[in-house]
């Protein structure tokens, strides 16, 4: 029977803490940039112009339908050699994860916008509002309320996806875990603890989602 022993991990608390901070930092960047890409792609796909909506649809489908791990590696190794731009591992990772998340965000945002009763933009149009004003004052504020729970869900995925940056040797929580395992040969305790740390970070968020879902069900 395996003898569980978590005590040795106390010695690595500094490493684990820096891993947590890296993970949170990447998460924030990937959520903010992802939302920005998602907003552009979500609204842009609703444009009647083919020149605007087709490339955005292509972007969404390519990033939704390919593994994020491959996107990450592709951004780091293939893109620089194709475009001749050197990209740091960090930049490549953030760009790939943000574009990946953005593809999913865009579908949530597009869905939220088209779920608004067409009478709403129509009434705003009748008041003489411009397209931008209608979006900003009438459609988005209403859509946002419906979009918040799925956007938060996707953001939870974003946090967990940052664990993949470890393949580019970026020192996030999972990467630090790997270091600890290499040194101590105790993967069971190490990865269990890491899973528990993710759980501790995300549990409050999922509870919030649940509460928002019951509130927006009104």
């Amino acid at each position: 029977m395996y003898q569980w022993n978590f005590a040795f991990l106390v010695d690595f608390r500094g490493l684990l803490l820096s891993g947590v901070l890296y993970t949170l930092g990447y998460t924030v960047l990937c959520i903010v940039l992802g939302l920005l890409f998602g907003l552009i792609a979500g609204i842009g796909q609703l444009s009647p112009s083919k020149w605007i909506n087709s490339p955005l649809k292509a972007y969404v489908e390519i990033f939704r339908c390919t593994p994020v791990l491959i996107q990450l590696i592709w951004f780091y190794y293939a893109l620089p050699s194709l475009l001749g731009i050197e990209m740091s591992a960090s930049t490549a990772a953030i760009l790939a994860l943000s574009l990946y998340g953005g593809a999913f965000y865009s579908e949530i945002i597009r869905g939220g916008i088209i779920s608004i009763d067409p009478g709403q933009p129509e009434a705003a149009r009748a008041l003489g509002m411009t397209k931008f004003q209608i979006m900003h004052r009438v459609v988005l504020p209403q859509a946002l309320r419906r979009m918040t729970p799925p956007l938060l869900n996707q953001s939870i995925m974003q946090l967990k996806n940052t664990s993949l940056v470890s393949v580019l040797a970026l020192p996030d929580l999972v990467y630090q875990g790997q270091l600890i395992v290499h040194e101590t040969y105790r993967p069971l305790e190490t990865y269990t603890l890491i899973a528990l740390i993710y759980l501790a970070i995300l549990l409050p968020t999922t509870t919030l989602v649940k509460r928002l879902e019951t509130r927006t069900a009104l």
């Binding site: 009478g119 709403q120 009748a126 008041l127 003489g128 209403q142 309320r145």
Partner: peptide, 20 residues
């Protein structure tokens, strides 16, 4: 077109008030 619309008031069958 927006300026033109602002000069004509429209009342709809289903009110279309802004719920937020």
């Amino acid at each position: 077109q927006a300026a033109f619309r602002a000069n004509t008031g429209m009342v709809f069958q289903h009110f279309n008030l802004f719920p937020h």
